[in-house]
């Protein structure tokens, strides 16, 4: 079984016997605290500047705002939300991310269930192929998919699409394809480890595979699904490349936060107070998700990565 299934694998309490006698305790504390400071200072610096005025930011470093007079305000956040279009980009990011998380995980769950609890010829070979696809660089897929999308036009009722490039649907489908190998891999490893008897007795009781899947396999796989939701959410929400390729210049109105902020870096140059506010708008949701679901996230990467 994978480490995903082992609750508490990470959060094991520090046994006192681990701490060696006579070890330089002060040195250890100093080392950890210095490392934490190095990791925090870059973020804190920009966060502080995102509350300062343009004059202050160009006249003195962010650290001077730690002492009175503070002169901090939310003006920069109001400005990027409105004038700089970060509010619209935030909504676009949500529209891109939600289906790009739901579709691959459900599609992968169907496949993982088949790989775990149904027998068919070529099952192992097919799964090895999925493992191989885990590391295919996205770059080798862009050009043929762009051409494929360019040939798709949908004219149905109010929908008038001449090319799929630039549409949310283009990104949903692409992220589904890209996210599937890892999702199938992780879910199959988890579902395959669920107790066999549960599914056997469900089948004896006359439950169809659909019922067994929806009522048993999915609810029992919540830890793995939660880990996957966080991964795929962070991957899609934070993605720049896929959005640039399939939405990018074709349809700027559909740009997610990452594209909008990358553009602001070019257009705003050294306006750190605005760039900082925009960056923190984009970080708010992932940090919230991460902070509340950290347990699952950590278990997921140790399970997924340690096992390959």
């Amino acid at each position: 079984m994978t480490a995903v299934a082992r609750p508490g694998a990470i959060a094991a309490p520090v046994a006192t016997s681990r701490i060696p006698r006579g070890f330089g305790r002060i040195g250890v504390h100093a080392g950890v605290i210095i490392l934490m400071a190095i990791w925090l200072i870059p973020t804190i610096g920009l966060l502080v500047n995102s509350f300062r005025s343009e004059q202050d930011v160009s006249a003195s470093g962010w650290w001077s705002a730690l002492f009175p007079p503070w002169n901090l305000s939310l003006d920069n956040y109001a400005s990027v939300l409105g004038e700089q279009g970060i509010g619209d980009a935030f909504v676009n990011s949500l529209f891109i991310t939600i289906p790009s998380v739901i579709i691959p995980i459900l599609v992968a769950a169907f496949a993982a269930y088949a790989f775990s609890w149904m027998s068919f010829p070529g099952r192992n070979l097919l799964f090895v192929a999925v493992v191989g696809l885990l590391v295919v660089p996205l770059q080798t897929t862009f050009i043929p998919i762009l051409k494929l999308y360019a040939g798709i036009s949908i004219h149905f009722g109010p929908v008038n699409i001449d090319t799929l490039n630039g549409e949310f649907l283009a990104v949903w489908l692409a992220h589904t394809g890209y996210g599937l190998p890892f999702a199938i891999y992780l879910l199959r490893n988890f579902m395959g480890g669920l107790p066999k008897e549960v599914f056997e007795s469900a089948a004896i009781d006359g439950a169809s595979p659909v019922v067994a899947f929806l009522r048993l396999a999915l609810p029992m796989s919540v830890p793995a699904i939660a880990a996957l939701v966080i991964f795929q959410f962070l991957f899609v929400w934070n993605d720049l490349l896929v959005a640039l390729v399939y939405i990018g210049s074709t349809n700027a109105a559909n740009s997610p936060l990452t594209i909008s902020i990358a553009n602001l870096v070019t257009s705003l140059g050294g306006n750190w107070q605005l760039l900082g506010a925009a960056a923190f708008m984009s970080m708010a949701l992932p940090l919230l998700v991460f902070a509340s679901l950290q347990r699952y996230f950590v278990r997921g990467i140790t399970g997924g990565a340690v096992k390959g």
Partner: peptide
């Protein structure tokens, strides 16, 4: 947990 774009700005 944050995007490389946000890390780039930071």
């Amino acid at each position: 947990a944050i995007s490389a774009v946000a890390a780039g700005v930071i």
